[in-house]
Every structure is written in structure tokens, then in C-alpha cells.
């Protein structure tokens, strides 16, 4: 597969390490009353859609950017890639 790196252009997927669902960026609030249940969902439960999927790839053999790649899991079509750090900050504060 080829991944359109926002800074470096089309890169071979062999340069990347795959992590999974981009929802891993939404780390729950550790101080919430429901923190334990929230973290349980966060750590263990993932959607596994047949179709469009936003997922995290690490450009390990490259510039070490974490990317959010939008990929159709049925066709492997890549619909876009963005730098994770460019997204609005979220998670625990």
C-alpha cells in the first residue's frame, strides 16, 4: 500500500508501523467518576468496521510522525492522511 504522508508525499506502507483505530487518541478523563469503565472501553473495545476506518500509523522508518489514515478496509483505498498532532488536542488534561 502507499500512504499519502501530508509532509513527505506517497510513502510505501512498509515504512510504517500500524497501531489501529484512531479512537485511541480519545483517552478518557482519568478523574471522571466513570473513569474505570471509560478506560475499559478505551483499552479493550474497538469497532471493526467493514468500510471506512480512521486508523493510526507511525512513520517509524521515516520522520516518526503519527498519522491518522482514513482507509476503506474492504478495498484498501486510502481516502486521506493527516498528522495526528495537527488535530485538536483531546484526552486527559
Amino acid at each position: 500500500m502507499l500512504i499519502p504522508h501530508p509532509l513527505l508525499g506517497l510513502r510505501d506502507s512498509q515504512e510504517f508501523t500500524y497501531l489501529g483505530d484512531a479512537s485511541l487518541m480519545n483517552r478518557p478523563d482519568p478523574s471522571a467518576v466513570t473513569a474505570e469503565a471509560d478506560f475499559c472501553d478505551y483499552v479493550f473495545l474497538r469497532d471493526n468496521p467493514a468500510g471506512v476506518h480512521r486508523e493510526l500509523w507511525f512513520h517509524e522508518q521515516g520522520d516518526r510522525s503519527w498519522l491518522i489514515v482514513t482507509r476503506n478496509t474492504l478495498t484498501h483505498e486510502i481516502l486521506g492522511a493527516e498528522l495526528a498532532r495537527d488535530l485538536p488536542a483531546r484526552g486527559a488534561k
Partner: peptide, 8 residues
């Protein structure tokens, strides 16, 4: 990951 994705 923690730096770029959780606490940029």
C-alpha cells in the same frame, strides 16, 4: 504516540 496523539 503520547506526545503527538494524546498531549500535543
Amino acid at each position: 504516540f503520547a506526545h503527538q496523539c494524546l498531549w500535543p
